[in-house]
Write a protein that binds this DNA or RNA. Sequence first.
DNA 1: ATTAGCACTCCAACATTGAGAGTGCTAACC
DNA 2: GGTTAGCACTCTCAATGTTGGAGTGCTAAT
Lengths: 339, 339
Amino acid sequence: MALSERKKQILHAIITEYIRTAQPVGSRTLARRYKVGLSPATIRNEMADLEELGFLIQPHTSAGRIPSQKGYRYYVDDLMEAPDLEEEVRDKIRQVYDFEKLKEIEEIIKHTSNLLSLLTNYTSLILGPQLKKSAFKKLQIMPVDHQRGLLVLVADTGFVKSKVINLPQTLSPGELNRIVSYLNMRLDGLTIDKITSSLIVELRRDLYHHIQFLEDTFTLLQDSLAEDERRVFLGGTTNILNQPEFGDIEKVKSLLSLFEQNSLLATLLSRPVAGVKGIVIKIGRENILEEVHDCSLVMATYCLGKEVAGTIGVLGPTRMDYAKTVAVIEQVVNHLGRL
Amino acid sequence: MALSERKKQILHAIITEYIRTAQPVGSRTLARRYKVGLSPATIRNEMADLEELGFLIQPHTSAGRIPSQKGYRYYVDDLMEAPDLEEEVRDKIRQVYDFEKLKEIEEIIKHTSNLLSLLTNYTSLILGPQLKKSAFKKLQIMPVDHQRGLLVLVADTGFVKSKVINLPQTLSPGELNRIVSYLNMRLDGLTIDKITSSLIVELRRDLYHHIQFLEDTFTLLQDSLAEDERRVFLGGTTNILNQPEFGDIEKVKSLLSLFEQNSLLATLLSRPVAGVKGIVIKIGRENILEEVHDCSLVMATYCLGKEVAGTIGVLGPTRMDYAKTVAVIEQVVNHLGRL
DNA sequence: ATTAGCACTCCAACATTGAGAGTGCTAACC
DNA sequence: GGTTAGCACTCTCAATGTTGGAGTGCTAAT
């Protein structure tokens, strides 16, 4: 699949131009706007070749060419070079991560997703950290009224989960405290996924005389566990509507209803094999979901501290500005890693 | 503005038909489908009158008539009668509120908003309860690591707010406990809006040697206070796209970006004067925001327990099915009041 | 007061046309 | 042999008719 230098150059130019204008690119325009020292006729020949090879598509006889999926793939893998970001952009990123004191994960993620959609003008998706991997830190029960209490579960990542539970009225404050400290002791330092159901059974045995109350507690624990359903944070959902390819209401509708389905979004983002570092780009039909078959997704795993936390992604039309998007994501992931 | 019985009947029929079909209604259709014992010609005369009076609009000569805003208003105030809900619908409502044990406000609201959008096929908006009005219940600080703690604030309504704060390292656990119980004592039973800044100043004086740490605490308190910005919960945002009036991308875009702006939504919903009971309907331009000038909003205040908690609303095109929507909202508000 | 009849208006859907953009091919050129 | 000019051809898009249907308003008859 080795293309001649000239073909590469032409393909590059076509894709660049198409990304800019969203219009099929003709040989004339190319000759005029990009200083290949070639006449339109020669370019036409090359374009015909590139079409034969599957990199370009002609929407109809006598229109210019547009990149095919294969064309984008080649561009992304071999042709594209990430631009330096403008100082202005770098500044904005720095601002978000420096000046605001972000302590809670959720806050960090929300800011990040806003930032991404702002900088790229596409829609950003961020898959939150996996609760499983974080370590149990502390569990606390605060009485709310005489029959209910608030159970708070804190993970070391700063992740907090709370739930109102029923407390048996027969339970004295002292007992409650003892139970809580016992649980804290037993669970101390474990990662959440170590809290298996067998451990729970064991605990339940140890504390069998408080069964009723514990049911709720364990339910929360197990829910948190079972909630492999990691939350996906969205930013700039309307950005994508500004793209000329979304003139069609049907498309808009299917995309927007996709945005409402957290689990599907999570599927989308969880593709890159755990551990794969760097940026992964899914173009058009390379994505699993039909709704985004004419979108592309640029994603990367991000770390918070040392742990791989989740996936960060930007969704745009297949005709998106890959180079810039990649640059932005790299920069952002970088900053995130330092927190 | 007293209309003759016959005019009322015709206006009613036109609106009903238009709500059903979204097409201008002509005299022929009306004579055929609605058993007014009149010929098209007579109906035409009446329609001309109604147009003169401002209840109807003719999109162009020789199209049928559609209701004007004034027409809808008259319909809603004087003509419409709320239908009995089908058993099937009543069942669905009962299911949501009976079988699932909803303890936390947020959960209740989320379920309600889903329910509403499901039953009406429009978009539901729910303005959450005002933190201000609920009573302070308890404040707790749980250490997370050696320099950070999780501050949890519980209101008696079950409302929970938490924030990670910095703890000065010089603070011993004993001291921390004393501070917490002191704060609890001082704040006990107050409604949140009683925790004015003057009280905070006072507390701050009493505890002046822990200033740094307290800053964060007070910030949270004040944030919760200042957060008059009450959260609006949305359901079925894509439903409204199924309405034929949203064939235009521009409209969709402006509406969707409105949906992303919590504060604007809160404005929309907070119109009905506090205390007004019953259902309020805002038609078209009666709404403040331009984005919904061709939508209508049916809303009602809802109670949780005895307190007025917030506003519940359904947003559809001006051509929405007011009768059904009103019936559904009434039913839902009813159920909510019983929780 | 109601209705039948009729001329009139307007929209929406469909065809027609011409201009513009772009191609592929051929033949000439370096 | 690679490159280019020239030209016929194709296809879209926008503008411009054309037509049929739906609905009206008016008038005259009931």
